[in-house]
Design a binder for these strands. Structure first.
Lengths: 251, 251
DNA sequence: AAATTCATGTCGTTT
DNA sequence: AAACGACGTGAATTT
């Protein structure tokens, strides 16, 4: 890694120089110090003075992290534009974006530590066990749904969103599948229902709706039954269908 | 701030010492270096070697950030437990959690910079413009919904979730309100419908459902009309109801 | 621990 | 830019 710069207990003026340099040269920047934060945009917020870690990325992302929690206490998403200045002898980091118009102001009373990094990283994460992989599996092996099922199309358009998988069963019924990678509640039933409604409105008859997921909550199952919709148990990770009980397993 | 420790281009053995010390003493830790990452849990993933910034918080949170994006490329949420070791001369940071069982392994080939911080911060964010504030406003000033509306209860239980606001109108109808702080699509209509269904199932008659939000999409409006549900325009931030047209504004 | 919902959600994709 | 849905969503709240 080239260009690692660090300041320990700098004056706010020294810190400003590093911050402006990091923004200019598109380097990742960390600032640890005592600050207060103002946010105004979709909502508005104020965070009184305290010690936090602020991260400014080359793409404009700003993250302010406290001692706890995955989520930053304040932030600005990628595409925002940052600038720094001195305000009453304090270091002010300002980030703005548009649509929606939002501003984030971080006022550092004291900077304890600031660093700028040039990170070399072109690698992307490979992730397994997503809904898209359930979809591929079903397109390739439609029999995991049921004998005689034919998967005709994925991402088929409807009036209110895309249908994960559309197909036909052995009896010639149309079948709408809604896939979920994890256990789901009644909102997933309603999502399936929207697509089924849509095809019935278009004049299709004999439309079955099947929710495909590892499991569903009780209230989701009630709602499925009330609407005449079905559930099929399927795991995303191993992508193996419901395992039948072994001979040693009794009720 | 007490106890700021920093290592620049340390050996992996030196870095290990700092990491273990930070974990032991519950300090915030940043590690910038070249690493590969393995994740296994609800899904599984692999991130090949590259330079990133890793953040380990005192509460067990782990965040691995690349040059871009708000979201970490890999992470472990708060409550996870971290440990460090040397593995084939490399620094291995391992974090595990249970329910769900998940493990994250960060293998540093080279550490460029590592720092540990004790952050003093007991302050919480004050945030305005949330749904809960729309709710309070409506409980206090029910006339923002309509003349004669009485707000009887918030967070009232139903079979499938809590109703934001439950009340009665001037004609004695029961009224279910679903509040949203921003523009919403058809899924919000279905959420409202679930609560209305539930009260009708319980034998209530004359149940009105009103979606309260700054605006709705076209498909949401269609679905509202098809279901006989209503929409009321209300902003979360200023919390002022839909402004009536001034005399200068014509169609 | 399970269920439910909000969120300044963020992010990807398509229209 | 708007709409729509997935996400290893996270976080809060209640049962």
């Amino acid at each position: 890694m080239t260009n690692l710069q660090t300041l320990r207990n700098p004056s706010n003026r020294e810190a400003l120089e590093l911050v402006e340099d990091a923004i200019q040269s598109s380097r990742m920047l960390t600032i640890v110090g005592s600050c207060e934060v103002d946010y105004d945009g979709r909502a508005s917020g104020y965070l009184a003075e305290g010690e936090r870690l602020t991260l400014l990325k080359p793409d404009g992302t700003v993250l302010i992290h406290q001692n706890q929690d995955s989520d930053p206490v304040n932030w600005q998403p990628s595409g925002s534009r940052a600038s720094a200045s001195l305000y009453e002898d304090k270091l002010k980091l300002e980030s703005t974006r548009s649509s929606p118009d939002e501003t984030l102001e971080v006022l550092f009373h004291e900077v304890h530590h600031a660093s700028a990094y040039s990170l070399q990283d072109g690698v992307e994460l490979s992730l397994y066990g997503q809904e898209s992989q359930m979809q591929e599996r079903i397109m390739n092996e439609p029999e995991v749904i049921e004998d005689g099922f034919r998967a005709l199309e994925k991402e088929r358009e409807s009036e209110c969103g895309r249908i994960d998988v559309f197909g036909r069963d052995d009896d010639g019924n149309h079948v709408v599948l809604e896939l979920k990678r994890r256990r789901v509640g009644p909102e997933a039933v309603d999502q399936l229902q929207r697509y089924v409604d849509d095809y019935r409105d278009k004049g299709y008859e004999n439309v079955r709706g099947i929710l495909v997921s590892p499991s569903v909550t009780d209230s989701a199952m009630e709602r499925l039954e009330a609407r005449g919709l079905e559930h099929l148990e399927l795991e995303p990770e191993s992508m193996t269908p419901q395992r039948t009980k072994s001979l040693d397993e009794f009720d």
